[in-house]
Design a protein around this nucleic acid. Sequence first.
DNA 1: AGGTGATCATTA
DNA 2: TAATGATCACCT
Length: 225
Amino acid sequence: MNSLIAPPQSLEELMLRADALAGKTIGEIASNINITVPDNLKVKKGWQGQFLEQCLGADSGNLSQPDFNHLGVELKTLPIDLLGRVEESTYVCVLNLIDHQLLQWQQSAVCKKLGHVLWVPIAKRAEQGVTESLIATPFLWKPSLEELEILKSDWENVMELVSLGKIDLLNARLGEVLQVRPKAAHSRVTTKAYGANGEIIDTLPRGFYLRASFTQKILSDNLKI
DNA sequence: AGGTGATCATTA
DNA sequence: TAATGATCACCT
């Protein structure tokens, strides 16, 4: 889905565009720009995210940088139900298992991407299609100092295991708010990593994800009153 | 290949 | 039934 809409020139312009979507259904917005909505997301898992990117004029493609790079803002859709409960974890970025030497938290992709996020909650209506899903209130978020410390700690714990070649110890149970999970087309895909003796090994590619409990708190903290 | 966008579906 | 591990599509 290529961007047909020019990137917003300012944060204000981005938020005006985002706010204009609030309260509308995916179907309404899609018909206005002649986009066909899939019946379900089984084989279109990233569709909502790409759709919102197009609606808002994101232009970073698959580069490892924030969606609105000139604004330093990352766009994330957040699947919720009608009661505002977060239904899925949030992918952040890949975990680089090779080029991590001397990488500090402030220089990491996780830190850069989560520095400033535009969250767009999308409420899926039970028993109804994607067309009926409702855009809730988008909001800008910067992690608090406390949140930043937890993210940094989670990230450093993972990177320590990676540095020590303890790839086998990585699993989704680690991390208070930031977890590591597989990130690949399927389980036979491999990527390079360092083993415990410094040798190169093949292992399943992993990515960083935010736990739903964390994004749930972010959402709750940002509810309008 | 390996990144982006994620949700699916089986397990615990 | 929540969470982990697996998987799907598109882009460069």
